[in-house]
Design a protein around this nucleic acid. Structure first.
Lengths: 181, 181
DNA sequence: GGTTTCATGTAACATGTTACATGATTCT
DNA sequence: AGAATCATGTAACATGTTACATGAAACC
């Protein structure tokens, strides 16, 4: 009875912000949700069909000249979304390839380990730069979001920045510790 | 030819630290690798068989009274592991249920949102406490790891702590911002 | 006229989790 | 004697990714 997977809620949530096509949903994940959520077409289209069958979303038929199919959330879909929002998020299993490699690298040459740390640091510096750019575009007021939702978007950006800053600092600390070995 | 999945390397890496059974590998993931890597039996046993077939690990036969099967890494397995360690880790797709909910919660009552943040903060405080406990047990010198590997374990613990501290700070900041709405 | 972006969808494949079945050993 | 932990393994299921096929519309 209950929805099986998280993807269904992700799609329901995206459609609650505004109606759109499967393609729009993918776009939304890639542009506003990177680092938070990802979906691929192989998942989106079957899920849209399931959600429609369950009456949680519906198609908008509008002088359908092209092959586009726009969906919007239904009242029942909104209810289902609100219920999910109330459930505490379950801690998800983590799999960090970097830390796994790092832990197993203790017998590798020091230079190799320092190189791994440098790359990891550069990766986070690049991410931090893109977060800052996103923040700047919010500052410039070119996004079409409401003031309230902007507070939430900024908060999510801040969390990404805090994470990156922490990892950059960690790389510094750790490089120093490894260098001293 | 090349190994398909990350689990194979995780298992290879764990066995490179020391020989063990499938059960030991699961234990290792649950105790020293939580927050970094997880495996389940349904994956471990078939993978051990594949790794054996590929000659990357081998069984240790020792007066096998019980049903235990202990594995150790082979020279070829060590080579394969070293090669993987040299490849840069690929950025993994992220899916954070909490942030997804948080972003979709902007239309929910303020109290509900503050509650979500409070729970998220408590969760990170609890994790921080376990990391500190793990650090204390390293300080006490009761772990049987080498001095060098201990440096790496401490570094991984530090990264977990930095992450938790960052998220706790973020919850404070964000609760204040939401409260002011 | 050609390239990029928009748009939908399926099939095959890869990966990961849960539940179950079984039994030995160790601890209380 | 009973409970907890150790130990191996399979089958069914759930989830997620990639490659492919197709074509319209927008841009240059």
């Amino acid at each position: 009875m209950a929805l099986k997977n998280k993807s269904m809620y992700a799609i329901l949530g995206i459609l609650h912000i505004g109606p759109g096509t499967g393609y729009d949903i993918k776009k939304y994940c890639d542009t506003v949700l990177p680092g938070i959520w990802n979906e691929n077409f192989g998942h989106i289209y079957p899920t849209l069909r399931m959600l429609t069958e369950q009456g949680l979303i519906e198609t908008i038929d509008e002088e359908n000249t092209t092959g586009k199919i726009r969906y919007r959330i239904t009242a029942r879909g909104q209810e289902e979304l609100d219920g999910w929002l109330t459930d505490p998020p379950q801690p998800q299993p983590v799999r960090s390839e970097f830390f796994l490699k790092f832990l197993f690298a203790s017998d590798q040459p020091k230079e190799k380990i320092l190189g791994m740390l440098r790359e990891y640091q550069e990766y986070h510096e690049a991410r931090l730069a893109t977060y800052r750019a996103m923040e700047a575009s919010l500052d410039a007021g070119i996004s079409g979001v409401t003031a309230k939702r902007e507070v939430f978007l900024r908060a999510v950006l801040r969390s990404g920045m805090i994470g990156c800053e922490g990892m950059i600092r960690w790389c510094d600390e750790t490089s120093a510790a490894i260098g001293a070995l």
